[in-house]
Design a protein around this nucleic acid. Structure first.
Length: 155
DNA sequence: GCCAACGTTGGC
DNA sequence: GCCAACGTTGGC
């Protein structure tokens, strides 16, 4: 099965791409997604899928590197922890509502591909990232868009 | 099922 | 810090 392509957003002050790189095995579980549409995308992720890592809500927003899905969707246990920020009493181990995947750092871009560059790049105009009112933290990206952004980032 | 109120996201 | 654009909640 050919790998699929995704973009995940993270606020670097909360969890940056450098944080992922410094994690054990350069891997983390991508928990805390509490939006149904984003969850559904998470559940479509498969091992080997490529993930563009985007920094949001910071000085210069943009894609900073590439990660890979190393474990596909499994129940997000932070939803069961009353002390977690992501606690959701309606999600239970018997009937989990929320899921997470495992992401592994793969490659730093030589330079950040900024939001304004993405907005200016003709092949990227249809990206979901640029669509009005978009607030998804996990979204699909086409292979062409992924390749274009990687090319910009590695130049 | 409608919809107003409220909370959150995230670019600016 | 502001605020537009959502999603969610809860009364009816």
């Amino acid at each position: 099965m050919a790998p699929k392509y995704w973009l995940v957003k993270s606020e670097p002050e909360v969890f940056s791409f450098a944080d992922l790189k410094m994690s054990r095995n350069r891997t983390t579980h991508w928990d805390g997604v509490r939006n149904y549409q984003a969850r559904n995308f998470l559940r479509e992720m498969e091992k080997g899928d490529r993930v563009l890592f985007y920094h949001s809500n910071c000085d210069i927003m943009g894609v900073v590197g590439v990660a890979e899905v190393t474990k596909e969707a499994y129940p997000d246990h932070s939803a069961w922890d009353p002390k977690s920020n992501y606690y959701d009493p309606d999600s239970t181990p018997e009937n989990p509502r929320w899921f997470m995947v495992e992401l592994t750092w793969q490659q730093d871009f030589k330079r950040k591909v900024t939001l304004s560059e993405i907005k200016a790049a003709r092949p990227l105009q249809k990206m979901r990232l640029l669509q009005r009112g978009n607030r998804l933290s996990v979204m699909p990206v086409s292979k062409a868009e992924h390749d274009c952004i990687c090319q910009m980032g590695m130049r």
